[in-house]
Amino acid sequence: MFQSIVVAVDGSDAATRGVDAACKLSEAFGGEVHLIHALENKAVDKSDHEKLASGGSGLTSDVIKSAMARAQNAGITPSSATVAEGDAFDEIMMIVNLYSADLVITGRRGLGTFSGMFAGSTSQQIAKHASCAFLSIK
């Protein structure tokens, strides 16, 4: 049923629960897990970009490393782990399309910005536009 599962991670508890759910579904259905962390320009300062570029430990690399370790501790080796720079929705959907995902999982924190009231949260945008199943975990 779920052969290709994309999980968007951002370091939140909800996203961590999303990784856990993806691992259980992967185990149940024999599917691949693809992790993505989207680094939005507006949300991260220059020092984080520099840390990422140099391969050092920083906000973004820690988020993806933590998600990978969590999956591996659950007995699942992610098929891919992507750190992308740009709009979270666009970057997540690019990975969903690249891997022909059957399911996309996001955490839902309910912390949308003021502009999110008009444009919608990333999770809301994915729910509206994804051509595959979508699971939002709180």
Rank of each mutant, 00 (worst) to 15 (best):
H34E: 05
L35C: 04
I36R: 01
H37D: 11
A38P: 04
N41C: 08
N41E: 11
K42T: 15
A43V: 08
A43C: 05
A43D: 09
D45P: 12
K46T: 13
K46H: 13
S47M: 05
D48G: 10
H49V: 00
K51T: 13
K51C: 07
A53Y: 07
A53G: 11
S54M: 05
S54V: 06
G55K: 01
G56Y: 05
S57M: 02
S57H: 14
S61M: 01
S61W: 02
D62C: 00
V63K: 00
I64R: 01
K65I: 06
K65N: 15
K65T: 14
S66H: 13
A67H: 05
A67P: 08
M68V: 15
A69T: 14
A69R: 13
R70P: 09
A71M: 04
N73V: 10
N73S: 15
N73L: 06
A74P: 07
A74C: 10
G75L: 08
G75K: 02
G75Y: 05
T77H: 09
T77M: 15
P78L: 01
S79V: 11
A81W: 07
A81C: 01
V83Y: 04
A84E: 10
E85L: 03
E85A: 02
G86T: 12
G86I: 05
A88R: 06
A88D: 07
A88Y: 09
A88G: 03
F89K: 02
F89L: 03
D90L: 01
E91V: 05
E91D: 07
I92K: 00
I92W: 03
M93N: 06
I95R: 04
I95N: 06
V96Y: 03
V96I: 04
N97V: 13
N97L: 06
L98M: 14
Y99K: 04
L103N: 11
I105H: 03
T106W: 05
T106H: 01
T106D: 07
R109G: 10
R109P: 07
G110R: 01
L111P: 05
G112S: 15
G112A: 11
T113R: 09
